[in-house]
Design a protein around this nucleic acid. Structure first.
Lengths: 129, 129
DNA sequence: CTTAACCTTCCACTAAACTGGAAGGTCAAG
DNA sequence: CTTGACCTTCCAGTTTAGTGGAAGGTTAAG
């Protein structure tokens, strides 16, 4: 697959893939005889993993750490295991923060929904926003 | 409360509070006769809310939107309600992404933990990392 | 009455994660 | 055989969220 096709499959741009390669999140791609990057199908999964991590608020450096562990083939090394345990811990904390935030926003929403919607003219731009 | 004390209570720096004020996330603080900012106790909750949002990966602009709705006093306006519904939807999507990511990392971790930790000398820096 | 720890404003700088654009090569279609 | 849509490298600019530091005011403690 060429870079544009691969990027589109992962919902990214070709620029972003070159950037990720530069940052070490993607291994240097194979090259076609004409010099074009040639990606394997699995690259899309890798990119989707990166995207999930980004959406979750991880930095590219953190995602890179996780990927480098995966790339090693999951050697039974205490350091690798501990790194992953740390990542899990961080993710749990992040999920807890997000859940707390959701609860707070849900309270705001319920209070707003309790009011009479007819009290606000839908034709007019809301004067508050 | 002075700025440093308030910032410390929320786990931030005074610089960050001034920055948030500049960006409209904090209303302009009352001033003591000497010109120092004087914060109310509730400011800490507001800062904690901002911090939760940041940890969750929201931008300051998104957090500002939520806060401005809260500041209005939750008027029963369809637009306000819809904005909050959208925020809830976004938060749910983010929680789902994060949960999926956690599952993937947990798989890596379980595979790594299944190996024999004794196979790696804890004294040596892990050769893989 | 000076020192230290606060505070003030303002301006510049940083890091992360892209994004745009220039200058040029490749290749299938008309 | 040229046009258009790809691709290449390289370098510069943008946005977000701060951080650092200068230059100076305030106040409690020694």
């Amino acid at each position: 697959m060429r870079i544009g096709e691969t990027a589109a499959a992962a919902g990214m741009t070709a620029k972003t893939l070159r950037f990720y390669e530069d940052r070490g999140l993607l291994p240097a791609a194979d090259r076609a005889p004409n010099g074009y990057r040639d990606y394997a199908q699995e690259t899309v999964s890798r990119l989707e993993f990166i995207r999930r991590g980004r959406t979750a608020g991880l930095t590219l450096a953190q995602i890179g750490d996780i990927l480098s562990v995966r790339d090693i083939g999951l050697a039974p090394c205490v350091h690798v295991r501990d790194l992953l345990a740390q990542q899990l811990h961080d993710l749990d904390a992040r999920i807890a923060e997000l859940t707390a935030l959701r609860a707070t926003v849900a309270e705001f929403h319920d209070a707003a929904a309790a009011g009479d919607p007819a009290a606000c003219d839908p034709e007019r731009i809301c004067s508050y926003l």
